[in-house]
Design a protein around this nucleic acid. Sequence first.
DNA 1: CAAAGACATTGCGCTGGATCAATTTGCCAC
DNA 2: GTGGCAAATTGATCCAGCGCAATGTCTTTG
Lengths: 250, 250
Amino acid sequence: MSQTAVHQCTHAALPLALAGVSDPCSHCESRSISLCSSLDEQGLAALSRITAAVPYAAKTDFVSEGEPATYLFNVTSGTVKLYRLLADGRRQIVGFLSAGDFIGIAVNDRYLYSAETVTPVTVCRFAKSKFKTVLEDYPALEKRLFLMAKNELAAAQDQILLLGRKTARERIASFLVMMDKRGAQPKGAALHAVHLPMSRSDIADYLGLTIETVSRTFTQFRNDGLIRLEGISGVTLLDPDGLAELAEGL
Amino acid sequence: MSQTAVHQCTHAALPLALAGVSDPCSHCESRSISLCSSLDEQGLAALSRITAAVPYAAKTDFVSEGEPATYLFNVTSGTVKLYRLLADGRRQIVGFLSAGDFIGIAVNDRYLYSAETVTPVTVCRFAKSKFKTVLEDYPALEKRLFLMAKNELAAAQDQILLLGRKTARERIASFLVMMDKRGAQPKGAALHAVHLPMSRSDIADYLGLTIETVSRTFTQFRNDGLIRLEGISGVTLLDPDGLAELAEGL
DNA sequence: CAAAGACATTGCGCTGGATCAATTTGCCAC
DNA sequence: GTGGCAAATTGATCCAGCGCAATGTCTTTG
């Protein structure tokens, strides 16, 4: 199953790889926010040489929990969800990734989670074996990976607090505030229009709730004047501060 | 408040520091399982020079979430709990630590969580500023820290799955299996006697449940013949495999 | 060894969120 | 447009785990 996924990657990669783009990295839009920001021109070129830019369609599984971590990925556009499953199919989404985020922190050389695209996505893919040789020459890269792992750990602990001790309202409020920060408008632009690329089911599986509770809580927030729902994937936070307080349990 | 805690550390450290133990590290019992295992004799000596072995009584708070991370700690004996609080006092324990575990992975140089001893504990304490200089000379140390962060991340994601999607029975089963593995007898010794140094309240706050549900589930497991309760902090797993299956949702 | 306090267990009623079941809405393909 | 499907919303009921209160057990201390 995951083999299939890997094969898909390979095929999908060919068109771009053969297109002969000499150095896709140097004009990469997510360069400044990804792990590449820790590299100088020379390092970037080294990484560029082992990189394949791969596009995936929406809803494509491309990493499977427990499989050998042969590839590492850097998301350059789109949204990805990471999830783990219980034997009977219960699903827990452990994170949503977007441009600049990294996939591939492994234990015992095996992926910790499965990954599936939410929207169409492009990733930079490295073979782990080759990546390791680049790592040796550029210790700043490893420092950067460590930093990313620490941030991921901090996010995981926020999530643990949320799942262990917050109510449904507090969870949804936390989620909206998080998504708002993520897509942050430059300054404190008073317009908190948030885009939610993922389905209600994904939100539910991320927050440890059911689809119905997510939906009901959204309408509750709407009736409370906290948000405005714009179509299916748009939300405007009418009272960001109130939501932030709710999120902290105040 | 946390300042007080830091001051307590300092005072508590004095007796040992002044005792003139020349090199406590070389005969340290947790040396082989802690981050020290990544150091040679010379590195160990360097670390030893900046180390203070500090004993804490049970129920001592010694790290506070959000405070500047001035010290790093290495647990050498006893059990520590790490936790985060919500504004109204709701508490979520994010992990239990024992000998060999490390405290101090920080983001923006601030602790991610508070730490309190469960039992009497001894830690090795380093000033972060000094630790950094040792880190520069011994890159293996940083690799080891990275490895520990990755393991912590894997544990955090197990916890996320547990809190988001497991029932009370499954959570308690997971907890018992985890504690059994942790205090693992050498071989597959059929005697699964597990010691639980923490209170029911700590277990509840770790598993996202209430004290009552923890207690009720223990008695349920006893009635189901899955465990035997020996006093207040002893449990024998009568059916470790059955519990492991329950933990996975089978 | 008795008294007191802290912690654990048990009983019982309640409720937040789950579950089951219709609608309703939005999105394409034609 | 319109027919058809997937996703979201809404309604009605249920129940796992919570909250409170009473009781029981262990530990500490004088």
